[in-house]
């Protein structure tokens, strides 16, 4: 067994266990920290797939920015105690069955897809996943979505500031 397969198995187990921990943890702070671990293991998968730049961006954006924001809000709202009333066991069973059904249907569809299309795949180029080639693609073929993303960010900033500074009293 090659070293890549062993790394893949370890990272997959880590990813799935941390994701389950996010869902089932009682303390929201633990959920946030486990989500950071999930992001790190997914970045490890990206590194295995020769996507170095995306792996680093994943760590910076998700584990760095988004999760810090989430944890900051959790601590700001002082929710780091278990005050969440539990749903009834019936709802939990139904939720688990639904999620399992969705997983089974996704697996079935992908089975059909994988059987029908005997996909050969193509070898990767020499500079696959490098910042240089990604930037060349981003600033030639995808320049319009890139600029639109900046407008989206401007709208998000304005929206967040507006919502954050709005007074609650005027109903």
């Amino acid at each position: 067994m090659e070293i890549q397969n062993i790394i893949f198995i370890i990272l997959s187990a880590l990813t799935l266990m941390c994701a389950l921990g996010v869902v089932f943890s009682k303390n929201p702070i633990h959920s946030g920290l486990l989500l950071v671990l999930t992001m790190f293991s997914i970045s490890g998968h990206y590194l295995l797939l020769h996507a170095q730049f995306v792996a680093i961006v994943n760590i910076i954006v998700y584990a760095g920015a988004v999760m810090v924001l989430l944890l900051f809000v959790l601590m700001l709202l002082n929710l780091n105690k278990d005050n969440e009333p539990q749903k009834s066991i019936m709802v939990k069973i139904i939720g688990t069955l639904s999620a399992g059904g969705i997983m089974i249907s996704l697996v079935a569809v992908s089975k059909i897809f994988l059987v029908q299309k005997s996909m050969q795949g193509r070898p990767i180029a020499e500079d696959f996943g490098y910042v240089k080639s990604l930037g060349a693609l981003l600033f030639t073929d995808y320049i319009l979505p890139f600029e639109l993303a900046s407008i989206l960010f401007l709208a998000a900033i304005v929206g967040a500031v507006f919502l954050g500074t709005r007074s609650v009293e005027n109903k």
Binding site: V22, V23, L74, E84, P85, K87, G95
Partner: peptide
Amino acid sequence: LIRRNMII
């Protein structure tokens, strides 16, 4: 489906 906390 099974959690209620919005942040989760």
